[in-house]
Amino acid sequence: MEGVRMSSWPRTCLCLCRSDEAVGGCLHSRCETRQRSGLSGASHMAAVDAEFPILGLCKRALQWRLRARKAQFLIIHDRAGYREVCKAKERLGNVWAQAVDVCSLDRFGHVDLLLALSMGFDHVVIQRVTTPNTAATQAQEIELAQAMGANERLVLYSSAKDLCKALAMAPKTPGRWRTPPPAISSSRQGTARACACVLLPDDSEPIPLPSDAPYGAVQLNASACSMCENCVWLCPTDALSVSDHTSELLFVESNCIQCGMCKSICPEDALRLEPRMMPSPISDGQRSLHQTAHAYCISCGEPFTTSPVMDRLLSRLLSNDTVLSEEGRNQKVQKCSTCRVREIRRLREKRLVEVGLSHLEPRRCR
């Protein structure tokens, strides 16, 4: 087989550091681009390009792929792995590959892998990390990308022999590119969901993901939920909320990052995390997890809490003889805060009349 010329495998250097402290210390061309865009005032598209360093390559690959019938390979390696890529160039022919030299292999995450596979590249071959600390991170990202639609189109290699084998086994003429490109947003999580919708089968059934995946749903044991709303106040992404007009717990799956804060704060242990991937039209909408009746103030009749919270509070009061010995305590908890304040003021004025000090004005807090 005739050897491939060095120019047939274009080489690009990308910096994946998204920290400002790393801009001055990295020699890749991506950092220089970020510095120039920062001086001129980055627009929305510049912010998107900065968040996805590989997006420019994907756009060019998609344009070429729409016109050609030849498969495109994306090879991800670091500086130490460039020699292995050169050896593979000399052995293979009839392969169109784009070699990308990245500053850190463990920073090339599942979002970048999914973006490449859903925008022009048929296969991604990435160099295996040998450092124990970063190898676990890479393995997690690879597993997550494969679960979200990459499957056998994503391969790891450790040597030039492995690289040649991966390129030789993949089909070279898979046909024209028929997949529409995903909708790119400035959010990495939203872009990953869009890419997964392109790569996964057109089905409404959820796809299970690894346990550490930042995508998924929250399942609720409605019989144990007391609607205390602790999970709502602690949720950092507003995935959980309470309806303004009804006592209803709402959930938006596309906002959930599976952080587990809602599960940790729930006093009834009623929440459970389910890592999964749902299609965007379904995951973007609100769905009801639980709905309960209102508890109404016995004085003014306005709703002020939920029925499960009130029932639980009254059951604890009824089981405490010391509390019941105080007259009217069980009725006070069934009043809203406004009525309780009014009751306190009324009792205070009554007490002042009894001691003959009704002419004194009560002090008010400023």
Rank of each mutant, 00 (worst) to 15 (best):
G3V: 08
C13S: 14
S19M: 04
H28W: 05
R30Y: 11
E32I: 10
Q35R: 15
F52L: 04
R60Q: 15
R60S: 14
R60A: 14
R60D: 14
A68H: 12
A80F: 09
A80W: 04
K89A: 06
R91Y: 01
V95Q: 08
L105H: 02
D106G: 00
G109R: 13
H110E: 05
L117F: 02
L117Y: 05
D122W: 02
P132Y: 03
L144S: 07
A145M: 02
G149C: 07
K161E: 13
K165H: 13
P171E: 03
R176G: 11
R176C: 07
P182D: 12
P182T: 08
R193N: 11
E229Q: 14
L240G: 01
V242E: 02
Q258M: 15
I265E: 12
R272S: 09
P281A: 01
D284V: 00
H290Y: 09
T292I: 00
H294L: 04
C300Y: 02
F304Y: 13
T305H: 03
T306Q: 01
S307K: 15
V309Y: 00
E327C: 08
R329T: 10
Q331G: 13
K332T: 10
V333S: 05
C336R: 09
R340Q: 14
V341T: 11
R342A: 15
R342F: 00
R351F: 13
